[in-house]
Every structure is written in structure tokens, then in C-alpha cells.
Amino acid sequence: MKDEKARVLSNVPIARDVWKLDLETDMACEPGQFVEVKCGGLFLRRPISVCEARNGVLTLIYKVVGRGTDWMSGLEQGQKVDVFGSLGTGFPTGQAGGFFETACCPVGNEEQQPESVLLIGGGVGVPPLVMTARKLQEQGIRVQAVLGFNSAVDVFGLDLFAGLGIEPVIATMDGTVGTKGTVLDAIDAAGLDADVVMSCGPLPMLRAVCARYENGYVSLESRMACGLGACMGCVVKTPDGSQLRVCKDGPVFRIGEVVL
């Protein structure tokens, strides 16, 4: 974890209100983690999930929704950005990350890894699934992906998955691309199945995923002040009534671990 000034390599729009920012930095990140970006003179940093981190380039894909992300969209090549990270607990994608010690593994067979994983992303929940896919493939796990958007103008990231040899199944709410409806509609239409699911996206989508699947993980979005677990501003409840912090204990949780 470190705080550094990263140089902007590129910052371009890739869909409606969605931008892709490449930063020159050797910051190490794991799938599902995030960084905190200082946005001009605004007091609070903005948490942005990591899309990819390799070969000295940190890729962030973000949606312009307020003052902070609007400031980010104005960044130009060569500028320096204050980035703090990497933060949070991400998706388990290898033995070192605890993948073989979770509910994904049959009881009494902790050395067995799943043969297949289905990645389910919605909107700006798609970016962290890119590095997740790559890391899973490096473990020899077969990866499928289904991505949901509102409309054709909101679709992005297909090129990033294509670079991994993955052709995602697409759902749009208005039916302008792929299956009309939700990601679950697209899963049913394509007949997709896997040993484990990993999902990131809007809360209604995550609730639907958790209602259908038992084996897997969901990554939550939350307003965060510190990003370090100190301020307790992003807590979620567990089934037994205790609390976990999205920024520190998450943002990735096992299905059933927290109440959505």
C-alpha cells in the first residue's frame, strides 16, 4: 500500500459517461481491489476499482457521476495524479488468495479448485472482472462472462475480454444489444453454468445473483471516506447482526456473508 503521483498515459471516453484512465505506476493490485484517487481540491478521495495492473500500467474505468469523477475526466496525458492503494480484499483467484479454503471447495477436499467460473458484471461493475478473468485463466480455470448494461451506448469492455480470448454474453435492458433484460435473463438464454460465480455491479443485480447462486462471491459498491476501515462509514450487516467494512473486509464477500 502506497501513496504516489502516477503519470497519466491516456484518459479517453469508451461509452456513455464512462472513461478509461491508464496511469504509469508499478503499484501492485489484486483482482477486485480498488484505489483512492485525489480529485483536485476536493477533500475526500474517490474510490475506483482496478480494471488491470500489469507491465507498469494501472487501468481504471470510471463513470462520471459527480464532481470528483468529472474532474478525472479532464485529466490529460502527462499530468500527475495522486493515487493511494491498493486497498480492500478482492476476489480469490489462487491458492495464495485463499481460493481453496472457501465454500467453493467440496468439504474435505481443500486442494480441489473449480473447473469453471462465471463472471457476472453490470455497468461499472464490469472493470474489476477483467483482471479477475486473467488471474483465473492463469490457474487453468475456464472462464465465462455475462455483462449487463442499460443500452448499446453503455456497452464497454468487450475488447478487454477479447484480449483474453473471452466473448462475453451481453444483456441490455432495452434489447439494443444481446438479450433483452437482465444478466440472469442472458444466462438463461445462453444456458450458462459454472462451479463458481463472481459478480460485481448494482445492488439489485447482486441481490438477484445471491438469490440464485450459493457458491461464489459478490463485490459491493459503497461510499467510502477513508478507505482503510477506520471511519466505519461503509459498514454492512452480516446474517448474525454483526458488522463488516466494505473497504477493508470487502469489497468482495462470499455469497451469504453479508445482508444485501
Rank of each mutant, 00 (worst) to 15 (best):
M1Q: 10
K2E: 15
D3T: 13
K5S: 15
R7D: 00
V8C: 06
P13W: 00
A15W: 08
R16Q: 14
L21E: 05
D22F: 01
M27W: 07
M27I: 11
P31I: 04
G40P: 07
E52V: 07
A53P: 05
T59E: 09
T59A: 11
L60H: 11
V65G: 15
V65W: 12
G66Q: 00
S73F: 06
E76G: 15
Q77V: 15
K80I: 05
V83P: 03
G85R: 02
S86L: 06
T89G: 02
F91H: 04
P92H: 02
P92N: 03
T93I: 09
G94T: 10
G94D: 14
A96S: 15
A96H: 14
A96F: 13
G98M: 08
F100P: 11
F100D: 14
T102P: 07
A103F: 10
A103Y: 07
V107Q: 12
E111S: 15
P114Y: 04
S116T: 07
V117S: 05
I120K: 03
G121H: 02
G123A: 12
V126C: 08
V130P: 03
M131K: 11
Q137K: 15
I141G: 15
A145D: 09
A145R: 13
L147Y: 03
G148I: 00
V155T: 10
G157C: 11
D159N: 12
F161C: 02
A162S: 13
A162Q: 09
G163C: 07
G165P: 09
D174V: 12
K180P: 08
A186W: 00
I187G: 09
D188L: 01
A189Q: 11
A190M: 10
G191A: 08
G191D: 05
D195V: 00
M198N: 12
G201P: 04
P202I: 00
L203A: 15
M205C: 11
L206V: 01
C210W: 01
A211K: 08
R212Q: 06
Y213R: 04
V218Y: 04
V218R: 03
L220F: 08
E221A: 14
R223T: 13
A225C: 12
A225V: 15
M232E: 12
D240C: 08
S242M: 04
L244P: 09
C247E: 07
D249V: 05
